[in-house]
Nucleic acid binder design. Structure first.
Length: 484
RNA sequence: GCCCCCAUCGUCCAGCGGCCUAGGACUCCGCCCUUUCAAGGCGGCAACGGGGAUUCGAAUUCCCCUGGGGGCACCA
């Protein structure tokens, strides 16, 4: 039987990094086994589900490159892949279970249940509802007829026990006193997550359920439901949860949890994928940078860690730098050009594009995030302003003015503004002025770029060209005089 | 409170009875390279939670404790 797996986000929020990782693992598992990867929308909570979240999920999945074979948007043999469109099917299953005596109409009031739980808790017993307020089928029918509202609950076999073999956790067992007679159909007729999700998994012939550990204790319910439907339960694999730096479940207060936020912050999809993949899985050796093909090739569920993993933003950033440096020159220029144009608020001219292409490799090896790049190249295409800290650190020093004036003089006499020629001229200036590179070059850097941190100096001068270089040196000299 | 899961450097992983003087990556700290910042090179700091048991031998197996996490809804 071929592998069929799914990721089933609920459009009640943006695609969370934890969900993204679960999606990635499902994807890698499917690709590794030449199986089918499905994207389903678990949108039974109509109150909280929105189109915006749904769009975000699709966009984020595509950005990561986790193409799905069946599911929302792309369709497939099991249309539809949206739970909100399958309500009839869930009701049908629920009715069948009631018919078979495996589920029942429940009239237990919230107050009764609350009281039961409190009491159980007080006595040190399991707070899982044991169905004690169940009424006879005849009575249920009668009360239903009089218009009384009811939920449908699954009748958990008691006493009993559910044992299953989890791929990452090995054998897990739950005594049924810990499993409540859970609601499968709300009093308004809509299915709960347990019902909808399980029915879909059965109908879509899901073979492996790979999901977060937070669902581990719900698994007996899903197995019981599956069996009650007369189907074979899938293989389960529960992934360790993602934590924030404080060791608590990753949430908004830890920073970005919406995957799209990382895209917007200048991260590369491949870097995020690589980082997420290694957060709880390892390829079997000490490799850290692993491309997608290698991940697919080497992915195994039994190499998934059991430990919760703390999301380390610093390491992600490092990895992003690795991927930026790994881009080929053309690809880098292609992704960076629109960013620079957006930053400037205008399109680049052909000449400017040539300058950008020239300078691109220099900023490429320095960037950790795409968002750092435009600000670093801005001085090439727009007027500058001096960074306050840089000014204090460099321009307020005694030799700054001298270096700038001397450089201005030397460069003014220079016709060949190639990098080599500029370097030769400026090093000559250092010598005649008796300045070391730090004292002699840093002021020039600030004069030209506005900051003490910039791409390499000689290349920058060459890229700016003679006119603008001289103008900026003049302006800096004036500014220094004015400041002293 | 009840149940489940987990436990190696600060963090992510390796280790699946002797190859461990516990390995790699990020971070941090030195040094080198160097026009700034990065990158890169070299080196360094840093961990098997505690107690029993099994064994000739335990980070690796078993038990207890402790600690951390998750779940216990007409939310998913």
């Amino acid at each position: 039987m071929s592998v069929r797996v799914r990721i089933a986000p609920s459009p009640t929020g943006y695609l969370h990094v934890g969900t993204a990782r679960a999606a990635l693992y499902n994807y890698l598992f499917a690709r590794h086994h030449n199986g089918v990867f499905i994207l389903r929308s678990d949108d039974t909570d109509t109150e909280r589900s929105t189109q915006e979240f749904s769009d975000d999920i699709v966009a984020s999945m595509r950005w990561l490159g986790l193409e799905w074979d069946e599911g929302i948007i792309v369709g497939g043999p099991h249309e539809t892949y949206r739970q909100s469109e399958r309500l009839g099917r869930y009701q049908e299953v629920a009715a069948g279970l009631v018919e078979a005596g495996k589920a029942y109409y429940s009239f237990a009031t919230p107050e009764q249940l609350e009281t039961f739980r409190n009491e159980a808790r007080r006595e040190g017993m399991s707070p899982a509802y044991d169905g004690r307020y169940k009424v006879s089928p005849a009575e249920a029918e009668e009360r239903l007829r009089t218009g009384e509202s009811a939920t449908v609950r699954f009748a958990v076999p008691r006493p009993g026990e559910t044992v299953f073999e989890d791929v990452v956790r090995d054998e897990v067992r739950f005594d049924h006193v810990q499993v409540d007679d859970f609601v499968i159909l709300r009093s308004n007729g809509t299915p709960t997550y347990h019902l909808a999700s399980t029915v879909d998994d059965v109908d879509f012939e899901i073979t492996h359920v790979i999901r977060g550990e937070d669902l581990l204790s719900s698994t007996p319910k899903h197995i019981l439901l599956t069996e009650a439907m007369g189907a074979e339960p899938p293989t389960y694999a529960h992934l360790p949860l993602l934590m924030g730096p404080d060791g608590k479940k990753l949430s908004k207060r830890h920073g970005h949890t919406a995957l799209a936020a990382y895209r917007d912050a200048g991260y590369l999809a491949d870097a995020v994928v690589n980082y997420l993949a290694l957060l709880g899985w390892n390829p079997g050796d000490d490799d850290t940078v692993v491309d997608r093909a290698a991940m697919i090739e080497r992915f195994e569920l039994d190499r998934v860690s059991k430990n919760p993993a703390i999301f380390d933003a610093v390491k992600l950033e490092w990895m992003n730098g690795v991927y930026i440096r790994g881009m080929n020159a053309d690809a880098f220029i292609a992704t960076v050009t629109p960013l620079v144009e957006e930053d400037l608020g205008r399109a680049l001219t052909a000449d400017e594009r040539a300058v950008l292409a020239e300078m691109a490799p220099l900023v490429q090896e320095r960037a950790k995030k795409l968002t750092e790049i435009a600000p670093q190249m801005r001085f090439l295409f727009a007027e500058i302003s001096y960074d306050e800290t840089s000014w204090q650190k460099v321009m307020a020093k005694p030799d700054a003015g001298r270096a700038i004036r001397s450089a201005r003089e030397v460069l003014a006499r220079l016709d060949d503004f190639s990098t080599n020629s500029v370097e030769h001229a400026l090093r000559g200036m250092l010598e005649t002025e008796g300045l070391n590179p730090r004292k002699g070059f840093q002021p020039l850097r600030v004069a030209l770029s506005g900051s003490s941190v910039s791409p390499p100096l000689f290349e920058s001068v060459a890229a700016l060209g003679k006119d603008r270089t001289l103008a900026r040196l003049d302006a800096a000299a004036v500014a220094i005089d004015a400041a002293s």
